[in-house]
Design a protein around this nucleic acid. Structure first.
Lengths: 335, 335
DNA sequence: CATTTCTGAGAAATCGATTGCTCGCTTCGC
DNA sequence: GCGAAGCGAGCAATCGATTTCTCAGAAATG
């Protein structure tokens, strides 16, 4: 039981509590003979320092808060796993915070991180107006993931969204598709706009005219992808392929097409931004642009650990690259 | 910044720190006029109580540790999400601990939970020899999930594995399959054995002879499912269907069959225990027995919160039921 | 050999809240 | 009208470690 405290160890070893602390933390030199007695006492009594007391005194905990919209989204699942691995390696534990893109929930968790003196926060901001100033003011280390916040000088780990989207669209174009729809996210999300830009750049590079009727803004969720796809079909927009700007919307779009018996890729080719676990087992195998989600988490963890050690360093900005995974849903079409 | 403390508030409101504390915690009656002054001071100064100090004094934190083998496994992803929702509702935060079924890692996290005075632990034990005695001795609330530990009097949230497996096997039998292989987990895991028993019970109920050559023990992972399937094929065991005892092994088995161009379900029918997100989009749509993973997490959270409030209550044991989701991989065969 | 510097260990302050105890004042009962 | 009971608020102890301060004794210096 946690009822043995540092005083008990001190008494048992015939030294002062200060000495026990010094031995355990290796802060100062201690007579080896005393140190041995202390360690023996620690072992005999099964002493385990009280972390809360230590945290109070040190004014620092070994906790990180990780704020994501939903661990259930495979993108974040793998990212969170990456963060956790990195955290453990540096001696931190990870508090999981699902915000559901809800500003209030997000603010609540930031308040908790502050109140509990957490050592750092890794956050994928709900939208571009998320307020990190309280954290920054309190000197809490912060790393943003996936999204960058204008006007906030914090570390950021990003993905080259524009390039990735360009990769996806270019792949469809190279496969012979010409009327490519784009289902992207909300206008107020920088990632949605970046992916849209990448799509447009690829079209321009191939000399294919942009058609605003082919571009839809949805909510980055399954239902959003589904209804955007449905709208495109219902409106009879001429279209031979679709690029969906995240994993869930891709699933939604595919479900809509499947339900309406639109053959993929014969009638409509499909490619999605961001991978889905076991996408290769889908019918048809889903072409995707993979984001290095696990590595994103690892990188964020590295940055955060580093910033905690070195609070003065100027804000860093890491941009990771995506990777094209062509599968059957975007098979080349004869033209 | 977190530099305003209770003394500052007290001074500002012209009262003692004790009174501020009482107002904020609503423990005792305080003159309404004073209370108003305190609240005003709190607001003006932007005071936020230091959680660490409070935790030290109260000898209790608002943290739960959740130990699972891997959030990346969809089973745990959804379960963890359930726990987190429940935790938030009760005012707790969740520390995510991935053990990778590694005893040392598990022990390490238990030590952290103890050192940091966490209010409770929800754990899916690595195997049946996981030692929770330190937690129990320290009076930490514990709930086990998915697995039950013999000889430990703690709350448990379980799934009716035997019944679920029976459901799966019976479904195959009812669809006309007769030579059904079973790829289950390691012998030392109770869940693996329960699912095996359910499979056997269904066979007996249908008067189909048990054949030990059809039963394989793998590691509950993708690679394990793959090689068990490969072995079955290589050995030329007569077989017209396979029941895989968890989600990852099902995927492995399907991959093996697909790779070797064994048509599912024409040549070999497939059903898996535990669902996979978007299994309906697989080729072929994967039949599964779904576990209520999210609800498992919610239930565990409820039990834990309740036990923290009521430490003396006798250990509870909740058993949730599974649900058959037949899809194409187990289509009825003409016989 | 006297004086200064260095070392290492203990005593006590500290982190920032909560809470038991005390005490003055009011209210009530007889 | 006086003592008992009740109430509300402050003082100070407490949670359990870390760290600053202090000081004795050893080592180094002149």
């Amino acid at each position: 039981m946690g009822l043995v405290k540092i005083q008990d160890v001190a008494r048992h070893a015939g030294v002062s509590a200060a000495t026990v602390s010094r031995v355990l933390n290796g802060r100062a030199t201690v007579n080896p003979e005393l140190a041995a007695r202390v360690l023996a006492a620690v072992r005999e009594l099964g002493y385990r320092p009280n972390g809360v007391a230590r945290n109070l005194r040190r004014r620092q905990t070994t906790l990180w808060a990780v704020l994501v919209s939903d661990v259930g989204n495979p993108f974040f699942t793998s990212l969170v796993r990456g963060v956790e691995d990195g955290a453990r390696q540096s001696g931190y534990s990870v508090v999981l915070c699902n915000t559901d893109e809800n500003r209030a929930r997000e603010a609540e968790y930031i308040a908790v991180a502050l109140a509990d003196n957490m050592a750092g926060v890794i956050i994928s901001p709900a939208d571009d107006s998320t307020d990190l100033s309280a954290l920054v003011a309190a000197g809490t280390a912060v790393v943003t993931i996936d999204r960058e916040l204008a006007g906030t000088e914090v570390d950021a780990v990003l993905v080259d969204n524009e390039k990735g989207a360009e990769l996806a669209a270019a792949h469809l174009l190279a496969s012979g598709y010409r009327r490519i729809a784009c289902i992207t996210g909300p206008r107020r999300m920088s990632t949605a706009m970046q992916r849209l830009r990448g799509y447009q750049r690829a079209l321009r590079a191939f000399g294919v005219p942009l058609d605003r009727a082919l571009v839809r803004h949805a909510d980055f969720r399954e239902a959003g992808g589904y209804s955007a796809m449905a709208a495109l079909l219902d409106e009879g927009v001429e279209m031979d392929a679709v690029f969906a700007a995240n994993n869930l919307m891709t699933v939604g779009a595919v479900e809509c097409l499947t339900e309406r018996r639109v053959p993929i890729p014969e009638r409509v080719g499909v490619i999605g931004f961001d991978d889905i676990p076991w996408a290769r087992l889908f019918r048809p195998g889903l072409s995707t642009v993979r984001q290095p989600t696990y590595e994103l988490g690892r990188a964020a963890a590295r940055l955060l650990a580093d910033r905690i050690e070195n609070p003065a360093r100027p804000a860093a900005r890491m941009v990771l690259q995506t990777e094209l995974h062509p599968r059957e849903s975007s098979h080349p079409r004869p033209h």
